[in-house]
Write a protein that binds this DNA or RNA. Sequence first.
DNA 1: GGTCTAAACGGACCGCAGTCCGCTTTCATT
DNA 2: AATGAAAGCGGACTGCGGTCCGTTTAGACC
Lengths: 195, 195
Amino acid sequence: MPISLPMADGPPPERADAARNRESILAAALRLVETRGVDCVTMDTVASEAGVGKGTLFRRFESREGLMAAVLNTSETQWQASVISGPPPLGPGAPPMERLLAFGHSRLHANLMSASLIEAAGRAGQRSVAAMSFANMHVRYLLRELGVDGDLPLLATAILAPLELVVLEQQVERERIPVERLEAAWDDLVRRVVG
Amino acid sequence: MPISLPMADGPPPERADAARNRESILAAALRLVETRGVDCVTMDTVASEAGVGKGTLFRRFESREGLMAAVLNTSETQWQASVISGPPPLGPGAPPMERLLAFGHSRLHANLMSASLIEAAGRAGQRSVAAMSFANMHVRYLLRELGVDGDLPLLATAILAPLELVVLEQQVERERIPVERLEAAWDDLVRRVVG
DNA sequence: GGTCTAAACGGACCGCAGTCCGCTTTCATT
DNA sequence: AATGAAAGCGGACTGCGGTCCGTTTAGACC
């Protein structure tokens, strides 16, 4: 006999139809993004493809940016998994400096890879606490491991900043700088900061 | 008697009415942005306030982002002037390291100050070659002055990256980090990089 | 001043993101 | 199984960015 005690009982559970709809929306969005490309995916299309009304999309995902952030999140999660438990040097097992450099390269490539999706996710992609704060936390951990001292959270942010898409795109698309040079420059930055 | 030699004669000159319209559009946009705030300024409003048709706006400024970038450019230009010829330590006269630190602080504040406008300018704000490449050039110059060697263009980009609005906003709005701490962390970064 | 052409103009029009509100479904309770 | 209320649903509707194209105008040349 469940009695209601005066505790914070969190957000109310999701209704069955709501869950079903969310999954089918996400699946439809993922499929459409893969086949047509992000820019050609409209909310109406996703809605009709998922077999729901437009209002449902917006109730579940807040905005187009929110939906795209959710799509992006699927690949982001996979990437995080390979950082946490994948093979070295990205995953655990390699010495910290090697891990850090591998991390930077990997993130650089990942960001360029899903560039259009990241852009479409916009602020929502940035502020998904998961995305940014995971990377920051990991870098912080590696810096501590390397014996760096100082304001680690902000130092981590500082060395992650050049890997942000806005910066990368300027360099790759506008200035035609080859990726290898970006990697080398990032390695240099890290060594200066750590050293 | 002007004869037409086979030379590249650049872009054709702007017609008088076109110039007049551009100015009145820019003035109207500036005024509206100041009074109502960026987010409440629609293209239709700007058009009617400037006394021109909507088509004219888009022919002159390409897009809403382009128009906002043009508005932003007016304050950006003032800022550049104070870097080039203002009083030290931001302007010339102070030792390079002091200038560099003053530059970072100034840019940090400037970015936060015109946050909404920068966001509204979006990609157009980023890629206005003037904005980014001026800052990069200046930092490059100061680094050279300080005897730093390495890939200076990319090193400059790297230390400018944490000052980008996307990064700052995450820290200030999301993580509630006080500005003074951001300044201190940037100083620390610079000192590590310069060695 | 007349004429001719390229440039500029402007507002009707379109597509899409996002809102609103009356209807439907779920499910806890009995 | 019946019931009631809260959560969910969906599609018509709005507002804005952006385009299109028939009309107007600047200004070069005669």
